[in-house]
Structure formats: C-alpha cells, structure tokens
Amino acid sequence: MTHLPYILASYGLAAVIALTLSVGAAVRLKKARTRLAALERPTDRTTGATPSL
C-alpha cells in the first residue's frame, strides 16, 4: 500500500502555507513602501498649499 496521498498532502500544505505567508508579506511590504513614499514626497507641496493650518 502506498502512502502517496499523505506525502503529497504534507508537501502541498507546506507549499500553500509558505506561499500565503510570503506573498502576503511581500504585498504588505510593497503597499507600505509606496504609501510611505507618497506621503513623504509631497510634503513641501502640501505645506505650501495649505496655509489654513
């Protein structure tokens, strides 16, 4: 009797978890980076544009 399904399920599970975690981390990092860059760049423009504060 072969135990192939158990072996494949183990490796598949490992792949799914690794992929989910790493893609999630990468997407989150990228999002944070672009957002931070967008916030830090236009500082001088907005300070000039909003005299009310």
Partner: peptide
C-alpha cells in the same frame, strides 16, 4: 519583511496624524 512593513505602517500612521499634515 512583516516587521519592516509594520515599521513603515507605524510611520505612515504618525505622519497622517501629525498636526502638520492634518490638511
């Protein structure tokens, strides 16, 4: 990677909530 993202996110939050940037 997650910790770097978290540091950036906390910086984003403090930038957004700083009074200079309210506008």
């Amino acid at each position: 990677a997650r910790t770097r993202a978290a540091v950036m996110e906390s910086r984003i939050r403090s930038l957004l909530s700083s009074p200079r940037r309210r506008g």
